[in-house]
Design a binder for these strands. Structure first.
Lengths: 213, 213
DNA sequence: TGCGGCATCAACCAAAGGGTTGACCTCGGG
DNA sequence: CCCGAGGTCAACCCTTTGGTTGATGCCGCA
C-alpha cells in the first residue's frame, strides 16, 4: 500500500453540469487530487489539456455538440508528454470502447461506477497503467475470443448508416462509394454476424453493441 | 416574484453515485431546499417517499436493476397526499415521456439541464405546477399535432418482429398471416412514420421509443 | 517478397421487398 | 343504422436488395 506523494491534477470534460458537479464533489474529497478545471465541450478539453498542466483528463464520449469525445481523446494523446485520458461514459458498446482505446485512452469507466472505484482508476491512469471497468474488460475478452464478430472500421461505418434507415444508394453517396462497394461490405457483414439481411444484421449488431442505436 | 417561505424537502433517486453527488452539490446551494435522502434504486425511492415527509422526488427513469422509474413514479403518485415526482433522465424519447406523464409525473427534465433551470423546475413542481424541459415540450407538441404517429397494436407487433430482423415471410408465419397482410401493415406503418423502407421504419420507431430495442 | 486481409469497383441474375388497387369482414360510435 | 377504422387477403408490377464472380490496389506481417 503506497500512498502517492504527488498530487494528481485533473481536468473534467462532460456536457452535463450535474455530472461535472458530481465528479467534483466525489473527487475533491480525495486529498491527493486537484481539479484544475471542468469544461462542457470536447473542444475546450483539447485546448485546456494543451495549455494547463494536467495529469489526467476525465472525458465523456457523448457531447451534445459536434466534436466527439474519442476525437478529442485522439488529439490530446497525440501530443507527447500530454495528460492521460480516462474515458467516462454511460454506455459500454464495443464500438465506443474500441474507438476510445484506439484513440489512445488510458482507461474506460462507466458512469455508474462507485466513487472509490473511480478514484482508484484515476490513480491507476495517473501512473500510466490502463484502467478498465470490469464490464468493459469482459467485453474486450469476448471480442478477442471470437474475432469473427469484429467488424472492420469501414464495415461498422456502413452498418451504422444502414441502421439509421439509409438505403444502399444513400450510404454510397454519404461515404463517397459505389453501390457495389456498399453491397460488398454488407455481404461481409452478413457473413461475420451470421445473418442474411440488412434488418437482421442491424438487430444482431445492436444486440452485441457493435453499433449505436 | 414570490419567494416561497417554506422549504422544499427533496428525495433523489438515481443509480449513478456521481449523478446523486452532482444533484446534491447543485441543489444544496439553494437555501430553500432540503435534501432528505438520496437512494440508488427505484424500490428504495418508493419506500422512502411513503415513510418520510417529502415534497418532491427527483426520479431517474433508467435504473440498472429491475424496477423502472416510471413504475416507481406510478406507485408514488398513486398515494394521495404523496410527493410530486419530477422525472430526470438522459433521453427524450416519446415512449419515455409518455410513460412518465401517464405514470403521474409532474415534470420531465433532461440531465443536461443547467442548475438554475433544475432548481426552477423543482420549485415549480413543489407548487404543483407541471415542469417540462423545452425539448420535451416540443416533442409533445409534435406528438399532438400528428396523432398519426400512434401505431395500432397489430402494426406495433409486426414492426417489432421486423426490428428483430425477421423477413416478411417469417413475420407472416409467426403471426399466422399471409405475406400480403404483412406488407399491407408495413405500408400503413411507413405512412404513419413518414418513411419508405423497413430499416428506416425501425430506425424511426426506435428513435421515438415506439418499439423495444 | 509474397501472402492475406481490407477496401474498392463492375456486371449480372434471382429474390425479396415495396407500392397499388381492390376487396371482404368485424366492430364500435355517431 | 351506416360509416369509418382496423384487420385480413389477392394479383400485379417495379425497385431495391441480396448473392456471385472476378478484378484491382494498398498495407502490414511473416
Amino acid at each position: 500500500m503506497t500512498v502517492p506523494a504527488t498530487t494528481v491534477r485533473l481536468l473534467l470534460a462532460d456536457d452535463h453540469p450535474v455530472v461535472r458537479a458530481g465528479l467534483r464533489a466525489v473527487l475533491e474529497t480525495e486529498a491527493d487530487f486537484e481539479i484544475v478545471a471542468d469544461v462542457p465541450t470536447a473542444e475546450q478539453a483539447v485546448r485546456l489539456a494543451a495549455e494547463c498542466d494536467v495529469d489526467v483528463v476525465l472525458m465523456d464520449l457523448q457531447f451534445g455538440g459536434r466534436m466527439l469525445g474519442s476525437q478529442a481523446t485522439a488529439e490530446i494523446t497525440a501530443r507527447p508528454g500530454g495528460p492521460r485520458v480516462l474515458v467516462l461514459t454511460t454506455y459500454d458498446t464495443d464500438a465506443d470502447i474500441l474507438a476510445a482505446i484506439e484513440a489512445g485512452a488510458t482507461g474506460y469507466l462507466l458512469k455508474d461506477a462507485p466513487p472509490q472505484e473511480l478514484a482508484a482508476a484515476v490513480r491507476t491512469a495517473a501512473a500510466g497503467r490502463s484502467a478498465l471497468a470490469p464490464t468493459v474488460a469482459l467485453r474486450l475478452m469476448d471480442r478477442l475470443r471470437t474475432p469473427a464478430t469484429a467488424l472492420s472500421r469501414r464495415e461498422t461505418e456502413v452498418l451504422q448508416l444502414v441502421a439509421e434507415g439509409h438505403s444502399n444508394a444513400a450510404v454510397s453517396k454519404r461515404l463517397f462509394l459505389s453501390q457495389a462497394t456498399v453491397k460488398s461490405h454488407l455481404v461481409h457483414i452478413y457473413a461475420k454476424l451470421g445473418v442474411d439481411s440488412r434488418t437482421s444484421a442491424v438487430a444482431a449488431a445492436t444486440a452485441q453493441g457493435l453499433i449505436r442505436r
